[in-house]
Simulated assay, not measured.
Amino acid sequence: MQDIELRQIWKSYDEKLKEQLVFNRKNTSDITKMKVKSALISMRPIKLFTVLAGILWVLFLDVLLINFFPVGNLFFLISIGFISLVNKIAVGIYVYQLILISVVDINAPVMGTQKKIAGLVSSTLWVTRILMLQLPFWTTFFLNSAWIGSGNLIFWIIQGVITVAFAAISFWLFINIRYENRDKRWFKFLFGSYEWTPIMKAQEMLVQINEYKEIND
């Protein structure tokens, strides 16, 4: 009789312990979801500022293009035109990212949230790659076609070297700004911590949530 009572007590204790573990895991999962949302929301101010600043910058560039168009300086028009185009694309991508951050639902299936964060990672890489393409055009916007025949040879040699160097750097960055290089020093320096770090933290926490879910299932 005493053995049966002991077994029942032990069984009851074991069930309560399992319930407590499940409860603790659920609480941990819920807290982690809140941290994911917080990490994503922390990126919103800098992205919103970038969008507003980008719109003003693009408007300024377009005003320059309109005002200088009658002059017909091809170096200026092509350079500023391309820079303006690249920044318009960047603003569009940042708007897309703000929308992604806004629609993230911490109570939705983890798979859906992972897809949205993957979209943030991909778009962050692409917007930086695209912005790098404007680098060589910052070395040509001030040139004048009238200088070609009358310009100093040394000036054009120096100008050519600088433009080619910027074009090479631009091309190299466009090719190498990839997720696989995220741990490299130059990558971390380029991206800083305001945009990239919160996304990485959110990804890591989603993996934890998946692990909690698998344990509970």
Rank of each mutant, 00 (worst) to 15 (best):
L77S: 05
L21M: 05
S38I: 05
K37Q: 12
K115M: 14
F166E: 03
D105H: 02
S102K: 07
A118E: 14
Q134F: 05
F82I: 12
A118L: 12
G112D: 11
N152V: 12
V104T: 13
T140E: 06
D3S: 10
W147P: 00
S84Y: 04
E15T: 14
E211G: 03
Y194N: 12
Q114E: 13
G160T: 10
W10K: 11
F68Q: 07
M43P: 00
E180Q: 14
T32P: 00
I41R: 02
V86L: 02
L153M: 09
A168M: 03
G72Y: 06
F75Y: 13
L52E: 15
S193Y: 08
A167Q: 03
Q159P: 00
Y212P: 00
Q159T: 14
F60Y: 10
S145A: 12
M43H: 00
V51Y: 03
G81A: 07
N73T: 05
T163F: 10
L173T: 03
A53R: 05
F155C: 02
M1Q: 07
D183Y: 04
S145Q: 10
G192P: 05
K16A: 13
G160Q: 06
N210L: 14
I80A: 06
Y94M: 04
L40E: 01
A90Y: 01
T163P: 04
Q134T: 10
I55R: 02
Y13K: 08
W147F: 11
F137W: 04
E204C: 07
Q2V: 10
L135W: 02
W57T: 13
L190S: 07
Y13H: 08
Q8W: 05
W186D: 06
S38W: 02
K201I: 15
D30K: 12
N87I: 07
F155N: 04
I101L: 15
L17T: 12
R129T: 11
T28Y: 11
T32K: 05
I106F: 09
I78F: 09
T124S: 15
T128K: 08
A90E: 02
Y96F: 14
R25P: 02
G151F: 04
V161M: 04
P109G: 08
K35M: 13
F174I: 06
L190Y: 10
L190D: 06
L52M: 12
M111G: 02
G54D: 00
T113V: 15
N87H: 15
T128M: 04
I215R: 11
P70K: 08
S42H: 08
T32W: 03
G92A: 04
N67A: 13
N107M: 06
V51H: 01
V121E: 09
M200T: 13
A118H: 04
I46W: 00
R182T: 09
I9E: 09
Y94K: 08
L59G: 14
F68T: 06
S193F: 09
I177C: 06
K188C: 07
N27V: 01
Q8A: 13
G81E: 06
I46H: 02
S145G: 08
S42G: 09
K184P: 00
V95W: 01
M1W: 01
M200P: 02
A118R: 08
T128A: 09
V36P: 00
Y194R: 12
F141P: 01
K201P: 01
